[in-house]
């Protein structure tokens, strides 16, 4: 059926998926990951980033299954290791656009150290973190972004740990561009993704997403629609808050950090090569 879609923008969008027996995908009904995947693909198409100029890298988890549906070079690596793997690809083929797509557990917990150091190194990669506040693939255990006191499969009496602010961590580690959006604000999310993809250097978009099957059920929020309504009613644009980093109750969406570009690692290492070669000829 999908093959019969009319040509034009929609056809171009669908061209970027593997339209074989991969679909329907593994994601649950009401899940936000598909929305974020579709938005990412639309952003790439609208920016004119071709399938052969792109490599999508992921780790392990629900979000990390996304590259498997895309018709481009894809790299489904180990749990938490998408960023170092992307670092290797970028350094070997700097002309490729490198996108890392993963979840909060994958990128902020097991891959947290790699995230910090890729930001510090200013690797020219764009990281999309789908934050559903839980380890969904394994059945809803608490993650580093599960708020304190909330219940999870491994926190039946409430989570006693504090949670991470992904965007704050990205800024503190030296990211060039940091933004947040939700799966409810699809047009806004696309804008944030396009800005991140355009920025040279390490850029991060946190995508607040719904997991109705596990997180929504544990917190008694309801189904996917209820969760999207929750995002709609509890999000606030960054321009409307005094200090986006102090906001605890609401989702502050928008560009949270956009600094003047500095050369990415690939460019800096090219200077190292030139220095080494000059020392040779001297």
């Amino acid at each position: 059926m999908l093959h019969e879609c009319p040509p034009g923008p929609v056809g171009d969008f669908l061209d970027r998926f593997r339209l074989d027996e991969r679909f329907p995908h593994i994601l649950c009904p009401g899940c936000g990951i598909g929305t974020a995947m579709g938005t990412m693909v639309r952003s790439l198409a609208e920016l004119g980033i071709g399938e052969d100029e792109l490599c999508v890298v992921s780790g392990i988890g629900c979000s990390s299954r996304v590259p498997g549906y895309m018709d481009t070079d894809t790299f489904h690596t180990l749990h938490g290791r998408a960023i170092p793997a992307a670092t290797g690809v970028k350094q070997a083929k700097p002309e490729l656009t490198l996108v890392v797509y993963g979840g909060d557990g994958d990128i902020m917990a097991i891959g947290g150290n790699h995230f910090i150091h890729a930001a510090r190194r200013n690797m020219d990669i764009t990281v999309f973190v789908v934050n559903n506040r839980t380890y969904a693939m394994t059945g809803g255990q608490y993650s580093p972004t599960t708020p304190t006191h909330e219940k999870a499969a491994t926190a039946p009496f409430g989570n006693c740990e504090r949670s991470f602010d992904i965007c704050f961590m990205a800024r503190a580690s030296g990211a060039m561009f940091v933004a947040r959006s939700t799966t409810y604000h699809v047009a806004h999310l696309k804008k944030m993704m396009k800005l991140a993809l355009t920025k040279t250097g390490f850029s991060v978009v946190e995508i607040v997403s719904q997991c109705p099957t596990l997180y929504g059920r544990h917190q008694r929020i309801g189904d996917g629609v209820k969760m999207l309504q929750w995002f709609r009613d509890n999000s606030v644009d960054v321009s409307k808050v005094e200090d986006p980093w102090q906001e605890q109750e609401r989702f502050v969406i928008g560009v949270l950090h956009d600094r003047e570009e500095v050369p990415p690692y690939t460019a800096l290492y090219q200077r190292v090569r030139e220095a080494a070669q000059q020392a040779d000829s001297a």
Binding site: V57, F75, T77, L78, R81, P84, A85, A86, T87, G88, V89, K90, Q91, A92, K93, L96, N113, H114, I116, H117, Y269
Partner: peptide, 19 residues
């Protein structure tokens, strides 16, 4: 490239090999 640990090292190397 000097990575943050040996896990990062081998994964980065795998990335370069894949490229």
């Amino acid at each position: 490239i000097q990575m943050e640990d040996e896990i990062g090292s081998i994964c980065c190397m795998n990335g370069a090999t894949a490229a």
